[in-house]
Design a protein around this nucleic acid. Structure first.
Lengths: 196, 196
DNA sequence: GGAATGGATTAACAAAAGATAATTTAGCTA
DNA sequence: TAGCTAAATTATCTTTTGTTAATCCATTCC
């Protein structure tokens, strides 16, 4: 159940963690596999689960009042995700999470995480670090909307995530960049012509 | 030095805090007044300070390579602020913070905050709460860029912050919304004509 | 009061983005 | 392989935004 591969990857979650620190977390986590197109989290959901991607790719998306899906983020290898609204504020999930590839995750109940953290100051410190890193990413993303044009945001994304930009459909990437798929297509054409 | 007014306001910083919990923070904080246009934090700065606005209004802004200022946020009564980059990651401040009104703040050295928090689990829990709330705000703001048009973002801002939108110059507000001042002016005109 | 200053608005034009639909491309399936 | 499906691109048109500069307006400062 607890294989070395799993252990090695979970270490990346934080700093200064020894095996004993994450042993309880490991015991309460469960390895699950999904086919592409499966929903891991649903809007309105109240069951609090944290996922950690061992292999594969997931997109988070919201559904507008008009019924259209807007992809908000991607999560892939060695990244954790959960419904922010649910985990942080005990409110029903606002978005769906769907696999885009065959995906293997570790799943753990958040209440169990809470209990385990409560008894381990090192994990508590780690929670702060994870929160800080998530916040940093969010603030950088906000800055990208304030400081960059859509074209610059696109170039920044493929520079920062060269692998991922080839694994996701452009229509989803467009949403993440805050533009329409048609507009992204034009930007790509523009960029390609500039290169030559 | 420690007046009741100050105490009352600092309580709002978190949950379940008693006087003894914040006594050390109070002792190490300093009340400072600024005229409009003064810089509280400067780009490149390494001195870690946390500010808490008792009265007044502050804007955070970044300077692009082209030398133009882009306002990223406002902070006003009962809100705390600091350089995210500096506080969270020990890197030089990326932005300036400047008063827009006569402003009274409490200022405290972040390293002192760290030490004090380390010896008080309730404050530690509170730090997590503050981080979570900051994260929530950031995520909501990202959503506003993904789900709303500039016009909708403007309407949302004045609905959510009716007081503040009247206290800040529109050119700064435009930056915060991710558009140009000229464009905001046109949006305002459009909105006004729709109403009638 | 008059001049100076800076913010807001307007104007004029170019560039980009949104919307919708048609066409092409690519991947999948029977 | 042929046919189906969905994504990507392209086309067309409309709307919005960016850019730059001019004008208007309000505040402040002699």
């Amino acid at each position: 159940m607890i294989d070395f591969q799993k252990l090695k990857q979970l270490y990346k979650l934080g700093r200064d963690l020894s095996f004993s620190d994450i042993q309880d977390l490991l015991k309460n986590s469960k390895a699950v596999s999904f086919a592409p197109g499966e929903l891991l989290i649903k809007e309105g959901q109240l069951r609090k689960e944290v996922f950690w991607v061992r292999k594969g790719l997931v997109r988070g998306f919201r559904v507008t009042e008009k019924g259209e899906e807007i992809t908000t983020m991607f999560r892939w290898e060695d990244q954790a995700f959960a419904s922010p609204n649910l985990i942080l504020f005990d409110e029903p999930a606002l978005q769906y999470f769907e696999t885009l590839e065959p995906t293997e995750v570790f799943k753990i109940d958040y209440d169990k995480v809470q209990t385990i953290i409560k008894n381990n100051p090192k994990l508590e410190a780690n929670r702060v670090i994870i929160l800080q890193n998530t916040l940093k990413e969010a603030l950088q993303r906000i800055d990208s909307f304030l400081l960059l044009s859509p074209e610059e945001r696109y170039l920044d994304f493929i520079r920062t995530n060269p692998d991922i930009s080839n694994r996701v459909p452009n229509k989803y990437l467009a949403n993440v960049l805050g533009i329409t798929p048609v507009s992204l297509s034009r930007i790509r054409k523009r960029v390609a012509s500039k290169k030559s």
